[in-house]
Design a binder for these strands. Structure first.
Lengths: 180, 180
DNA sequence: GTCTATAAAATGATAGAC
DNA sequence: GTCTATCATTTTATAGAC
């Protein structure tokens, strides 16, 4: 991966996150990255190829995050880590994750609608077990509820809420979970 | 509002909801509605005007829904009604509400980002009171949490989940709320 | 109110030189 | 690997006839 290739990827990521995939012209990406428009197509074939490359990075980074949670031993620690995940993702690489979440709502990518990644499914399974270990009566439903909650939280994080709001939300959510 | 005007609006709504605002050409709207493309611009000035007209309808319909909840007397009934709101909205007018929710993620409309409507703020205030009446210690935070939950639920509703999933989710959420 | 025809600009993509 | 120049299409929008 050459320097310009990375530059294109980084710029495209930023612009896609800010303005959406289909409202960001390749001409703008080229201008912002300071490269010729032709170069984008030489390296990534077409606009979709550019998105593919970004998504490949995404899978990799998400895998690392999930791994870090899965390796925790205490069930409650796992649950708290999942609760903190969206905030962590957004604070570390805001544009990157904004793009991820917004994809769900944009035009079907390559004809398929949004599909949860393998990492996501692994996480669900691990958290279900955690709830079970804590003695919750309906672990599957608890996970489902928690997902709804974190989905909504990710949603809110797009609006750049204050740090105070974020912290207060996190601790309030955590306060709802304990050994059953 | 003439017959063709309504037809254009209805068709645009459907297509915007399916494919997004900026990925739906006016030519397609015209073809699907069986009218000339020029007529769209004659009536709605430009593509944005078309969206404005749709959004005006939205405000009106949302107002009706909120009014129905506000007039309930029992605090728990209000909370349950809010919990049921997303499902009700999607089952009654799926495309319409899908468009609403997806707008949050699309390109900033007219340069402003998404802003909650007056109806929304009214609803928040009423539900906060309901929690207070039920004796909850931190009603504001409870509302915030509930909003996250319903935001996430709306998100999931986009994926056309099974009716069984929906019902089970609703009753599980409700089971978390009672007189404190 | 509605349609046909057309303009004007933007956009994705390719070819060929360096 | 990279750039310049250019093409083909699509898309928003307007003008004028009926």
């Amino acid at each position: 991966m050459t320097e310009k290739q990375e530059l294109i990827l980084e710029t495209a990521l930023k612009l896609f996150a800010e303005n959406g995939f289909d409202t960001t012209p390749t001409s703008l990406i080229a201008r912002e990255a300071g490269v010729s428009e032709g170069l984008i197509f030489r390296h990534f074939t077409n606009k979709e190829g550019l998105m593919d490359a970004i998504l490949a990075l995404s899978e990799e980074r998400m895998g690392q995050k999930v791994q870090a949670i899965v390796t925790l031993t205490e069930p409650l620690a796992k649950i708290y880590a999942v609760i903190e995940l969206p905030v962590k993702l957004f604070s570390e690489e805001r544009e990157f994750w904004k793009l991820q979440f917004s994809l769900k709502w944009q035009k079907k990518y390559k004809g398929q609608s949004y599909r949860p990644s393998g990492h996501y499914l692994e996480l669900v399974s691990v958290i279900t077990d955690a709830f079970r270990q804590l003695g919750y009566a309906e672990p599957e439903k608890e996970v489902m509820l928690l997902i709804l909650l974190l989905d909504g939280l990710s949603n809110q994080l797009m609006q750049q809420p204050s740090d105070e709001f974020i912290q207060s939300t996190l601790s309030f959510i955590k306060s709802k979970y304990f050994n059953a």
